[in-house]
Design a protein around this nucleic acid. Sequence first.
DNA 1: TTTGCTATTATGTACTACAAATATAGTAAG
DNA 2: CTTACTATATTTGTAGTACATAATAGCAAA
Lengths: 231, 231
Amino acid sequence: MNEEFINDLSKNLGRVKANTMADDVEVKLRQYLKKMSLKPGDPLPKETDLAEALGVSRNVVREALSRLRMLGMIETRKRKGAVLASPDILLAFERVLDPLLIDDITLRDIFELRLVLEMGLADLLYARMTEGDIDELEKIANSEINKDKSFLVKNEIAFHGKLYEMTGNSTLKRFQIMLLPIFAYVITLVNKPYSGKVDHRGLVDILKNGTKEDFKKGMYEHLKPHFDRLK
Amino acid sequence: MNEEFINDLSKNLGRVKANTMADDVEVKLRQYLKKMSLKPGDPLPKETDLAEALGVSRNVVREALSRLRMLGMIETRKRKGAVLASPDILLAFERVLDPLLIDDITLRDIFELRLVLEMGLADLLYARMTEGDIDELEKIANSEINKDKSFLVKNEIAFHGKLYEMTGNSTLKRFQIMLLPIFAYVITLVNKPYSGKVDHRGLVDILKNGTKEDFKKGMYEHLKPHFDRLK
DNA sequence: TTTGCTATTATGTACTACAAATATAGTAAG
DNA sequence: CTTACTATATTTGTAGTACATAATAGCAAA
């Protein structure tokens, strides 16, 4: 069969995709929001007016609005109509970040992104961390002695989450929360217990006594076993 | 006025948000995709069947499908129906990454994320870069002598893009492309010419002769002036 | 000033109808 | 056996109508 060939061809050529009207309207609405420089809370025209102005049916307008609503760009209330919301950057990401739907290569790429990110945290951590932060981290790390596996996973999340939190960068923190399902999935890939060269208490020690560069090395060793599980 | 009181109350209680049927159907469809563990290319039931099975109108089903289509999770063709696509993680991100719609704090956070990321690139670069890569980088860096500003912006993008490309991590590369509008916007915030302590040729020199740690320091100095523009 | 009722209005949902595209089958030609 | 053409069936895409539902604004009543 030449099925693979076709598949390959299709990938190289890219598919011809006839835009639907909903696609066009979506774009036009985005342009409208920008052009009018609306602030959060400002109202949009009602659906029937939009439909008439754009020369499409209300159905089409509703599809486009439905998309924007899903992304948190607008909110709609009965009788009042649609209003611009405070757009939430990461909401969209969460919608597609399902590990089961992501191919292995991308999964590996994303995990590598985490590796880069968490090693990079060092620079922010050493600039911003407080005594209280360290204490809290240490408490988390110490609580994981002789616990079962499901607890360890939760603790893993708590520990790394705290690290992100310490950066004071809330977008970074939310980015991590978003990526959590991916990492949780990676952990389940193999059922032998996790055992990196450097554990959480090791990382805390480094934060207390070591250098930035030590921390990066430590984090690399800490995450490496996970990474190796991905083929 | 008791306006503050109301505002406070609203924040503590959270807003009631009545889910529309399209929201529910969207969730159900996602669950369906997972449950059936469909592979890219596998077909979905046709709209009328979905509508009947879910007990909703075809309109509602179409709204939900429209959302999934926007995110690149499915593709639909006339007569054939909808099929699961290779979901594109970053497509969703692009939909909300409009610098004009992002508030200043998030903008700053994202730029910081870039900073962390590009400093972290060092670890991948030193492991994977080739002679050819360095040559190409050098060519880009050398081409920017005595050029006007719009050229410099393009070159800035080319140079950093090449760095991401050298990591061999295509998700990382696309992540950068996605964030470009943000950085381009940041550059336009101030019109005095860009002048970091370390320029592109400096970075190339470091890659040729310096250490990982040198590169991180260099990248920090290179990006710092941009960062400082954000308030 | 607060509460209760009522009319109004925009969104939410359902349904019907048809246009447009295209996979499939079938047939003929080379 | 491959290619070309044709016809048919089927599914998405768009339009339009109708009504349910919820929220607003205004007025009435306490």
